[in-house]
Design a binder for these strands. Sequence first.
DNA 1: GAACTGACTTGAT
DNA 2: AATCAAGCCAGTT
Length: 104
Amino acid sequence: MRSFKEKVILAVGQIPKGRVASYGQIAAICGNIRAARQVGAILKSVQDLGSLPWWRVLNSQGNISIKGNFSATKSLQKILLEEEGVEVTANFSIEMEKYRWKKK
DNA sequence: GAACTGACTTGAT
DNA sequence: AATCAAGCCAGTT
């Protein structure tokens, strides 16, 4: 039985470049939208910056919701998204309807 | 194995 | 629009 954690990692890995998904969306793909919190917790613990596009995951409002407003991680996420062509406003908000990932 | 934790979401103030 | 409160549940301790 594959753990929820593994499913999350796989799902996040499927997000194409230049698109974003919400924690809830990832959780839904993994079988349980209510486990959205775990998605964040997992991304935090994985620390696999090279192979896992964790920065393409945002909250349902289309915002970066990392704990702590001025954390280096939060700033990094903004930069990484912009590198892919996703517009991120100064207050870390994103146009979800425009960039939301639609799984085939 | 019980208790604690939280990078979420939603609905009510 | 901005805050608050309460569900929810896998991972961690």
